[in-house]
Amino acid sequence: MTRLTPTRAWAATILFAAFAILPMITQALGDSYLIVIATRILAYAIAALALDLILGYGGMVSFGHAAYLGIGAYAVAILGRAGITDLGAHMLAAIAVAAVFALITGAISLRTRGIYFIMITLAFAQMGYFFFVSLSAYGGDDGVTLNARSTVFGQPLLENNTALYYTALALLIGLYLLAVAITRSRFGRVLTGARENPLRMQAIGFSPFRYQLTAYVISGCMASIAGVMLANQASYVSPSYMDWHRSGELVVMVVFGGIGNLLGAVAGATIALLLEEWLALLTRHWPILFGLILVLVVLYSRDGLSGFFRSDRS
């Protein structure tokens, strides 16, 4: 279970403070591209945080979390075209659809365990991918460019990249605090217990399924908010948000940062995306290097990646 030790609280404060002053640094440097990357990092950090909640605390290896990114992104595109541009409305719609999708697919996936769970979440995400590919009204495979970003109180505030960045940061901090609270609550104890020993939890009177499904739905809703942010950042929406590679990258982020350590998910998203950016500078064929690093780290860390980066599970 997460204990909010002083060290952890300090680490969180320092990390988020660093994010908070970043725009000032980029402004001083006169580099406007950095803030774009940083906004993407924040959005992916939200998604990684959501995934860590079920992967790290619930023991559910979802390989289909990109589906929720797509749901969030298309909520912006579809509502935007219908003339509804409010950010709050976009997020509510994204959360509602994500909740329904997570409830249905989660209820089926959670009837199974282990390898089955991994493959089924992957398959359901692929189903969502094909759904949007065949939506020709929204560009099908090619996706669709947004006319404008979401508005706040009717004002186009988010057109400013810095404003969008701080909105994403505020959402990330808010969701981080929410996730920490959940892991420390009664609910979090049952969720963690069900990961540790599901039979034991039944023997003391809990039905693990209900708690796991609830956590799965919460996680999906959180990840859909990341999709809303990503769509706004790129002003562009396409099925590639739901590509299974994207789901894989989310898992990589969580593991890089340390499983079951919500702050680690934020750090992991930062590490993974910066690594990608850096490798892409070196070569056009950067996935080879990224994949190589991934394979080597998994093979040559003593307990595997999950043990290597595990932080608070002594």
Partner: peptide, 24 residues
């Protein structure tokens, strides 16, 4: 080297291989 590892490690390592081979 991965048979005794958790499924998560297997998924990550083979995902890395997919990236390497697809690009290669």
């Amino acid at each position: 080297r991965l048979y005794d590892r958790p499924h998560l490690d297997q998924v990550l390592a083979t995902f890395g291989l997919v990236m390497i081979i697809t690009e290669g």
